[in-house]
Design a protein around this nucleic acid. Structure first.
Lengths: 192, 192
DNA sequence: TGTTTTTCTTAACTTAAGTCAACGAATTAG
DNA sequence: CTAATTCGTTGACTTAAGTTAAGAAAAACA
């Protein structure tokens, strides 16, 4: 049932055979975390990646004593720290903003799966390529936009976030201060 | 000789067998473009990706009639448009800023290679995962930095760019106007 | 070589974001 | 349920970026 969410997600990117489905269902283990749980800390080694079935995870850095939010992940999104599976300590944090249910992956599990079912490599490659293309587009958009445009874009593409995430974390995510976001919102009300 | 640059690059990410080396050498074809060549235009379908052996490629969008530079690629970097191999028209341009020599890849070539040598999938997967992790870090850095910090970061990480690329394209890449970049440079001189 | 075009800088002015401080509103915790 | 904390907004002021315009320097071109 819950595992099928993962299959549903994967099949968006590539056709899934019955065989693959079985393997994934048997191997992927599900974990639940309560609100506020820190899944990864600065300085720690990252040996887990997550697939969100239900809930919300925030990634942030601490710079000059300030939390800088860099991403929000919600249902059907994969959360892979950039140092996942490497011997490099993490530069960022992962925090559950809500009660969150995830599929959890480890390098060992991955290795095992790839050995058993080499076809999975194609799937993952296609998947990762697709995610990367999307990330590239988002990066370009971010670079080309003003804070106000970025806010409007977020409203359109992820309206749910505005309801479930504190405003000051949204501001940080947009690269501005909470005060600036407040003013942008006020400015927009006056014009419409 | 030139092909070996590609092997050299790939071997940074994963061990390369003799067999793979042969395949790559035989199949990868090399093309040379003169300065100013447009490799991809907005609205066109992208069926080529590039590996730069020598030279420099810029990717940009046109927004409100203005060129917005989103990336510079130089020696030993792979240039893969986000719509490469898809039926979606490109939203961006690719331009050679110098005489540029590249290895050129196509979806057909890729398919052929993966069929002949399934092991190549592992390599590509590892490669793409590594590139994605790097991109993620860059994205986070960009989000967390002020224009001035982004400029300092660029000076440290890619000092060569400052010599080979026009200043106003650098400014656009940093998300600011050429005038602002001028002022940042002046400000920095006064303080040091 | 001399000329055109592009590139970079400067200045004056406008606009928006950062900062500091304060104050209710909402949320959390005991 | 109340106290304490966190959160969002507002105002006054500072700082930096956008805009417009002009001119000098450098590069491309013919």
């Amino acid at each position: 049932m819950m595992e099928n969410e993962i299959i549903k997600y994967l099949s968006k990117y590539i056709p899934i055979t019955k065989e693959m489905e079985e393997v994934i269902n048997e191997s992927g283990f599900i974990k639940s975390f309560k609100k506020g749980t820190i899944l990864l800390e600065e300085g720690k080694i990252s040996n887990e990646c997550f697939f969100i079935i239900k809930g919300c995870i925030r990634s942030f850095h601490i710079k000059d004593g300030e939390e800088k939010t860099t991403d929000f992940y919600t249902e059907e999104q994969a959360v892979t720290p950039s140092v996942y599976g490497k011997r490099i300590p993490s530069g960022s944090y992962l925090e559950c903003l809500e009660e969150t249910i995830t599929g959890v992956g480890t390098p060992e599990l991955e290795t095992e799966l790839y050995q058993k079912f080499p076809q999975l490599e194609s799937l993952t490659r296609a998947l990762v390529e697709a995610i990367m293309a999307k990330q590239q587009d988002e990066m370009d958009d971010f670079k080309m936009s003003s804070p106000e445009e970025r806010y409007l874009h977020l409203l359109k593409t992820r309206p749910d976030l505005m309801q479930r995430v504190p405003q000051h974390q949204i501001a940080s995510y947009l690269g501005i201060t909470p005060e600036s976001l407040s003013r942008i919102r006020k400015r927009m009300l006056r014009k419409e």
